[in-house]
Simulated scan of single mutants.
Amino acid sequence: MSNVSSNSTESSLQGRGRAIGVPKRCWCGEGIISLISKSDSNPYRRYYRCQFAVANKLRNDEHTFKWVDEAFVNEIDTLNAKNADLEKQLKEIRTERFEFEKMVYEKMEKEIFEKVEDGLSEAKASHKKIMIVLVFFCMIMIGLTKLLG
């Protein structure tokens, strides 16, 4: 383990690009290990380091180095951003679903009203026929009572 003294801006930068979140591999292809700092400026602070750089005791190189707490904050920020995106997508899906359901209900309502109107039209036609038959029957009855009476 090496004595590491670095401020947080230097620690979050890599020579070959910025490592976001918990690093898995160094740019050189080596794995990452977790170590504990023994420096006076950061005693017992955990950090991630390239296995190659640790094995060769390299210092101030371009291999991956990142404080664990900063990596976790990056991970949390990334998860918060993903969560916000998912909430936005969910809101859009709910809006689309609401619009779809509204369209379906309006179509169903229209079909139901058409069927009710058709039923009422048939009932009115049937009612008219019955009324005509009854009026005709009443006229016959009145005529028969005058003829017989």
Rank of each mutant, 00 (worst) to 15 (best):
C50G: 04
A123C: 07
S41Q: 11
A71W: 02
G17P: 01
L13F: 09
A84L: 02
S41T: 13
K82M: 08
L86P: 01
G21W: 01
F113A: 11
I112C: 07
L134W: 06
G15T: 00
N42Y: 09
M141V: 12
G31A: 09
D69N: 07
K107V: 08
L90S: 12
I142V: 14
G15I: 00
G21H: 01
K146F: 15
M103E: 15
I142M: 10
L134T: 09
D40R: 00
A71Q: 05
R97S: 13
S5H: 08
R16P: 00
Q14I: 03
G119R: 08
H127E: 13
S126W: 08
A125W: 02
I130W: 09
I76Q: 06
G21C: 03
F100S: 11
Q51P: 00
E10R: 12
V68D: 05
A123W: 00
C28W: 02
L147G: 11
I33E: 10
G15W: 04
K124A: 13
H63C: 09
E117I: 10
Y47F: 15
Q14N: 14
W27G: 13
N74A: 05
L147E: 08
F72E: 12
T9K: 10
E106T: 04
K91H: 06
K110R: 13
V4Q: 08
V73T: 15
Y44A: 11
F136N: 13
K24C: 08
S121D: 13
N56D: 04
K146I: 15
R16A: 04
E101M: 11
P43R: 09
E10W: 06
F65W: 04
E106C: 03
A81F: 02
G31T: 10
K38E: 13
P43F: 05
Y105C: 05
R16N: 08
E96C: 06
K82G: 01
N42E: 11
E101V: 12
P43W: 06
C138G: 09
E75M: 11
Y44T: 09
F137Q: 07
T9N: 13
H63S: 03
K88M: 06
D85V: 01
I93S: 08
D61A: 10
I112S: 06
C28H: 01
V135A: 14
M1F: 04
V135D: 14
W67D: 04
I130Y: 10
S2F: 01
A53L: 05
R25S: 10
R18K: 12
K91T: 10
S37K: 01
Q14K: 05
S12R: 15
M139H: 06
E114W: 00
H63W: 02
L79T: 02
G143L: 13
I36N: 02
H63M: 03
K129H: 08
E111N: 10
